[in-house]
Simulated scan of single mutants.
Amino acid sequence: MVYGVPGLLVFKCTGTIRSRPRTSARVFFDHDITYTVRTFCVSRQCQSGHNKWSKIRHDKGKKDANKANSFSKLSEQITEYTKRYGADPKMNGRLKLLLDQAKKSGMSGTSMDNAVKRGQGLSISGKPLETVNIEGMTQEGVSFIVECVTDNKLRTLQDVRLIINKAGGKLTPVSYLFVKHPYMHLTGPEDLSPENQMAALEDPVLTLSIEYVGLLPGETSTWEARVEYSEPPMQLVEDMQKMLPEGWSVTKTGLKYYPSEHVQVEDESEAGDAFRNFVEKLEDCPDVSEIYSNLRWSSYEPPKHEIVLTE
């Protein structure tokens, strides 16, 4: 029988309980025993995953992830426009707009300063930065190039080598398996369909002889334009910006390694999981800026929206 008041549960058990005392005599007693148990909470029980805090936690996690992604893109753009037009917002109108946008979105002043410093080729401490490329191959035969930007070359080499060794990889020259090309990221209005965006890009792409333009995987309005020059053609970037339709802009430029041949790996396989873990470890290294590989997942599908310039 169970009865009680909120916060207090009383269990009453009526019956015969035979107990044997610590004597040689065989004596038995009959008892009516009442157990009283005080609980710590009087609220209604909720199943796990269905309470209010659980919903708030999941919603907050999604918002935080979106916010971090937004900050990352803003940081990249601040660094990019600092490289191209200088670190003085008074002389760099685009940089001033980006800094104002970052401030309104809640980005910290330290993060904005660090993004500007990277654009100036300086580390957070103010020391000059240098680029270090580390080449190697995994156990599965996937070639990779790890591009690092650091103010301490020896420290970075040691950290990255340790990650490669733990993953079972080896350091070996593989740059001959890649082709280095300049690229531009072109971002257009999100309310346009990919087909209309591609139509808007045809004229500047053909006029400037851009060899390839394709919609980036997972993106809806950002395209990557690849050119065949050996160095970043800043004049070409400026010409592209002038020729782009209204609402379009060049959001990123740089040099990228494109594989000349690919190694296919099954998505759901031990080799695939091992490579994902390897890349995650590299991305956790603060000095690693880019990771290039010739891996192609078995589920890969060619881009549906692209412009290829043929002779």
Rank of each mutant, 00 (worst) to 15 (best):
K60P: 03
R118V: 00
K103Y: 11
H58M: 13
K73Y: 09
K63Y: 08
S108N: 01
A102D: 05
K67D: 06
S72D: 15
D88H: 04
A87F: 05
G93L: 05
G86D: 02
N69A: 15
N66H: 15
A115M: 05
S111Q: 09
D59K: 11
S75V: 02
M112T: 05
G49H: 02
S108L: 02
S72A: 15
K117G: 02
T79I: 01
I56V: 12
D64N: 12
A65G: 12
I56M: 03
Q101E: 14
K117E: 07
E76N: 12
H50C: 02
L74E: 09
H50D: 01
S105R: 12
W53D: 12
K60T: 07
M91R: 15
K117M: 07
K117F: 06
H58T: 08
N92H: 06
A65C: 01
Q47E: 07
Y81Q: 06
T79A: 10
K104M: 06
G106I: 01
C46E: 12
K60D: 04
S54P: 00
K96W: 02
F71P: 03
H58P: 01
D88Q: 04
K83R: 15
K83W: 03
K52Y: 02
K63L: 06
D59T: 07
N92F: 00
M112Y: 05
S111Y: 04
K63M: 08
A115R: 02
V116N: 07
H58S: 13
G61M: 08
D59V: 03
K73N: 15
S72G: 10
D64Y: 11
N69Q: 13
N114R: 12
E76Q: 12
K83H: 10
S70L: 14
A65Q: 11
T79G: 08
D100G: 14
N69K: 14
K90F: 13
M107K: 11
G49K: 01
R57S: 12
N114I: 08
A115W: 00
K62Y: 07
Y81N: 05
G109S: 11
K96R: 09
K96M: 03
K104P: 03
I78S: 04
K104G: 10
A102M: 02
L95K: 02
L99V: 11
S72T: 12
S75A: 14
L99E: 13
H58N: 13
Q77V: 03
S48C: 04
S48W: 01
A87M: 08
M91H: 15
G109K: 14
R118G: 10
E76K: 14
M112E: 09
H50Y: 06
T79Q: 10
P89W: 10
M91A: 15
Q77A: 13
L74P: 05
K73E: 14
Y85R: 06
I78P: 07
D113W: 09
T110A: 14
D100Q: 14
S75K: 14
Y85T: 00
G86S: 03
H58Q: 13
L98Q: 05
K52F: 00
S70G: 11
K52I: 00
D64W: 09
I78N: 08
S108Q: 04
G109C: 03
H58R: 15
K67H: 15
Q47M: 09
K103G: 14
Y81L: 07
F71G: 11
M91I: 04
I78L: 06
D88R: 10
M107Y: 05
E80P: 01
K67F: 07
S70D: 10
A115G: 08
